[in-house]
Amino acid sequence: MTALDCNRPREAAAKARLATRSGEHGLAWLAVSPALLLLVGLLFGPVAAVVLFSLTDWQLGSFTFHFIGIANFRALFADPTFWKALTNTLVYVAIVVPGTVLLGLVVALLIETSPGLRGFYRAAHFLPVMSTMSAMAIVWGTMLHPTIGLVNRALGVMGISGVNWLRDERTALLALALIGIWQGFGFAMVLFVSGLKAVPQQLYDAAAVDGADGVLDRLRFVTLPMLGPVTMFVVILTAKRSFEVFDSVRVLTQGGPNYASEVLLHRLYTESFDFLHMGYGAALTVVYLAVIVLLTLTQARLLERRVHYS
């Protein structure tokens, strides 16, 4: 039996093969098409729309709009509340990031040094991460209440007279930062623990042989250097989350008093959805987007480097 039936012209065979191969192509495109559609419709289209909106004077509900160039941005940069929100956000980040990272690191180190109650500690510290922020913010609101709140009662016992934490211009942002740390440090702890688990035991053995066998020596010469990349990661992750602070602000202070706790995302929300200034809100969004994208790119760059190291 020879292959007479296959002796058709080469092009025909090539065409048939092309068909099977474009079959795989077609299948692949079928598989990615929903994602592709949504990617364009729900992500890239909207981003383009935001940029477009930011150049118009459009207000929700109105049927006309005009391109007004960068007038929205000019208004934004001339608006003291924007600058207030920006500086507040930066201050918030500047408090929450070190607080979260340090607390998370210390807790992780302590949890990992010995197995006693390890499971309990891990769960306890992680609980805030899982909890619904809007509900817990309400709870924090009562804890920070000037008269019946736990904080002022405790201070009272120690003979210190507390303040009205959330209504005082000096303390409102600080109180929110405290809540931010409370919610985030358990997550930092978990990331640090997984970083600690990845430190090879041989390094400790080597350090011990080299004479670094005290707890602090081990920490200084082995643990902390090895945690460098994880720390970088946690810092950036926490920074990103802090830039996104919204729930606690909305629930507790709504940016007050007198914009003392106004932050970018809350500003964005109020301008766009309370006042329906879509053009202005879009300009604010563009600025916000730029900040976050910059931060994420830094993270990607750093993570890339981490991959190269290991």
């Binding site: 729900l42 992500l43 909207p46 981003v47 916000y288």
Partner: peptide, 26 residues
């Protein structure tokens, strides 16, 4: 494929809050 994957990576950069206005309008 590579273009699509790059698009996914770019999408990863976008914070969802930044899309709120157009989503709302849509």
């Amino acid at each position: 494929r590579d273009t699509l994957f790059s698009a996914v990576l770019v999408g990863l950069l976008l914070p969802p809050q930044a899309l709120a206005i157009p989503h709302f309008v849509m």
